[in-house]
Write a protein that binds this DNA or RNA. Sequence first.
DNA 1: GACTGGCGGGG
DNA 2: GTGTACGCCAGTC
Length: 598
Amino acid sequence: MESRKFVLLDIDYITEGDKAVIRMFGRLEGDEEGQSIIVLDKNFKPYIYVLPLDPEQCMADLNEFDIEMVGWVRINYLGEMKDFLKVTLHHPQDVPKLRDKIRNLGSVKDILEHDIPFYRRYLIDKNIFPMGQVLVNGKCVDSASISFSCDTDVCIFELEGKPKQVESGFPDLKTLSFDIEVRNPKGMPQAEEDPIIMMSLSSNQGLKKVLSTKSSDLEFVETLKTEAHIIQRFFEIVRSENPDILLGYNSDNFDMPYIRDRAAKLNVKPNLGVDGSGIKFMRRGYANSALVKGRIHVDLYLLMRRYLQLDRYTLERVYKELFDEAKEDVPGDEIYQYWDEGGEKLKKLFEYSLDDAVAVTKIAEKMLPLSMELTRIVGQPFFDIARMATGQMVEWYLIRKAHEIGDMVPNKPSSSQYSERRGKKAAGGYVKDPVKGLHENIVSFDFRSLYPSIIISKNVSPDTLVLECDDDDCYTAPEVGHKFLKKPIGFVPSIIGNILEERVRLKTAMKMAENPREKQVLDVQQQALKRLANSMYGVYGYSRFRWYRIECAEAVTAWGRDFIKKTMEKAENFGFKAIYADTDGFYATFVDQETESE
DNA sequence: GACTGGCGGGG
DNA sequence: GTGTACGCCAGTC
């Protein structure tokens, strides 16, 4: 048996025969450092939990289905130990096929953990983390024996036993940014008519290139015969550069679909993936995403919307915000004129095109570390994390933690529960409208992590919420009166507690660190934890969340209002006068008593 | 106010 | 794919 150590980049599953096979895409460490690896695991089965009404009947009913196996397990479900039937199925797609039938059985009360995608289930159950190092035992297999095509220098490895997470530092990854220009004389580009005239590439290892059908004396321009050749050459470069991360700007919605459409029209095979596959498009509600197997396609536009607070999110605007430098711009509707005119204008267009790709590389260098760290903490693929709202990350973090301590994961709300929840809204933080005028002698006060602190100190959690209890045994929220047991420590409070403790540890380490690179890494890590801790309050108030509980949301904000008001009163007793307050802090002027009495 | 429809980015 | 999910603002009544 051999072993391999690799950075886990991405994960999915394929079907061989009637069996699901997990594929982990990675970058090898050690002897064959830098080589791509695909690790196969053929021994992971999907499962769901069934909460029975009539245990014996339920067991009998379940055995009527074509399932792998079924057995009893005792699991903590929102503060109560309950007996569940763990139903193991043959294939992930049996889950959606069978779950409604099972749920509707008369002997069944509810089904749980039936909507966790197979690859996510794998990461959680095996306790491994994308962007971290994983150690596997097993053997290399011949590329002839696998059901997908693959470049010859990719190591295919069949795993035996369990993958193991290895403590590791920040991985050094290869990124490749790309951008396309289109000749669209009227309106927005239409893939049916308007050809791609340039494709730009920029890597974090120095590659700078513009592919085009026109030539130039600019050294970064490579001229090709036709548009089809440009696209083909683009795919070729991606494969030979073999980046871990592919970067674009609004590429989920523009560049990738456009490349797909033009490639299809011109009969060019889009074999961008590590496994030789093309670009896969997925509808995620309102948004689309473009996926390239084994490389992580990241659309920076989505990330920038999340991380920066701006009026607009054009590439120029974001670049200016981060680097305080203007970027040369060619207006979109004039690109075809620059192209047609040639000469200096064309040269400018080449420069602009490359500049866009280079800007994306620069932005990524600054902004990706935070997402990478969130990936390592939340433990879901980078591709998903780059498209997830923080609230969703919190949820997946909690799902992992629930599994870790053996708690059942609550279901997502049904559509009727969702619409019922949407009608309710917890009152927000206390706001005192600002006193108009120009104030002097201003002091400011704010609570550090107000809501996370309340959740911890008042043990606010769905599993500690009770209707009745002795005052000595519980905390009672002001105004709303919700009660929370003092013991045991609730699920969410214990997790926020761990996050905050870990953050304190990192901040201490950061202060002690002498190496600036190390300091920077620790700083990103503590920022990621801060984001998670601060978003955790949201799980109680957002209608779509599994741990939603309006009473918890109401209690947290009620205590918040209580604290800020009491603090303001105390400050006023000392001669301060509050002039503005919002949620977790206030501004006050100091009124000098002696001056005033004169 | 309560509700609906459109839009963001990209060329 | 153990799919189908935003959040804001302008315009209308």
